[in-house]
Design a binder for these strands. Structure first.
Lengths: 202, 202
DNA sequence: TCAATTCGAAACGATAACGTATCGTAATTC
DNA sequence: GAATTACGATACGTTATCGTTTCGAATTGA
């Protein structure tokens, strides 16, 4: 239950329970309340931890926030390769839409992006840790689709990535779910698959 | 330069210069700084106006913010009908991307949507004033496209709207411009037009 | 001219978070 | 057992900002 320091410290070891409580509280607080309401005191309160316990670990608010953000990496869930390319793509978009069944990442992402102009280094960190790996995974799926001949080889990849991610983020921001009348991921993939133009007008 | 009240008041009339200065400052402040930093004091400072001048007009912060938001309607620029349907669509998306060459609306929209859970009535107002008219305009263009046979008549309209608006908002949130290597509106329309699947695999 | 009203500026008290320190308790090493 | 360090809780003085009120000057109708 306690962290073991490599160099055997003398006194009471720091609680790793407090460590993770602080990290979790920081991420949830940021997602729930946003940047402006993110304060040491609020994190301590939410984590059930004394302020001194936080100040013993971090010098100030920015350090705490930056450290918490780095807990965002790790799990980019692997998509089990399905037989059908379009099925795989749909599943991938569903994952992006739900952000790994855990909306914490996506709520943080949206907050950081919408406030990015004010905190560029935070924006860069989230871009690197959350957005980039998912875009890479998406590109890999697209490349595989081209390989197996399911995807046109002449499509603009940048445009395609924007066409796949954009609608997911947009629908999430609107707070619309497929159950609530919004477009389903399947129908979006379907439109994208066949295109908007009639076959006769290509 | 001064507002003429219907009932001729006795004292010094309220300055309509201050009126519009307050409105403008409120919108810009909200776009620049976000909800949490939106305060009477900051609006007064930015407008070059005494705080009492604002309190004489609005009871509190929420009233001021709501009034300022209602200045957002009015101009949904009309798209001159071009000959080519896809050209019209591209121009429409460019307009959405730049939000009428004035990023104020789009910055406000993104802030409101990302913070919408906390302020549902504000979200409803922006949805009504900014998003709904633009979606209506887009649907009209799509309907016309079907009429003239440029657009498949069996496409899912909801999905198509999400596919058109989503990428624009997403690229704007990322802060990417076509000049900076991001996908151009033309290439997005092009991918959407022809679809992702090879002709042989439809 | 006089009373009424608004103006921008500034003073006022309240609130909140900051960073630090202290308290008694708990955990660990020597 | 003694020394040391961390724990949660809480108190402290400082700073910043908020909403509200007050002030003299300015602008109007009567």
């Amino acid at each position: 239950m306690l962290t073991q320091a490599p160099t055997r410290a003398k006194g009471r070891p720091r609680s790793c329970v407090a460590d993770s409580a602080i990290d979790t509280a920081a991420l949830e607080l940021f997602a729930d309340e946003g940047f402006e309401r993110f304060s040491i005191e609020a994190v301590a309160s939410r984590a059930g931890v004394g302020k001194a316990t936080i100040y013993r670990r971090f010098a100030n608010r920015d350090e705490l926030l930056a450290h918490a953000m780095q807990q965002l990496d790790a799990d980019v869930p692997v998509i089990s390769e399905l037989g059908d390319f379009w099925q795989t793509l749909t599943k991938l978009l569903d994952d992006i839409r739900e952000s790994s069944l855990d909306s914490l990442k996506s709520r943080i992402m949206i907050r950081v992006l919408s406030e990015g102009a004010r905190h560029p280094q935070l924006r860069a960190m989230v871009t690197e840790l959350v957005i980039r790996p998912r875009q890479a995974r998406l590109r890999a799926v697209l490349a595989h689709g081209i390989q197996v001949g399911q995807l046109r080889s002449d499509v603009d990849i940048e445009a395609t990535v924007a066409l796949l991610i954009g609608p997911m983020v947009w629908l999430k921001m609107l707070g619309l779910t497929p159950e609530a009348g919004a477009a389903s991921t399947e129908s979006i993939v379907q439109v994208l698959r066949t295109g908007l133009a009639p076959a006769s007008r290509l």
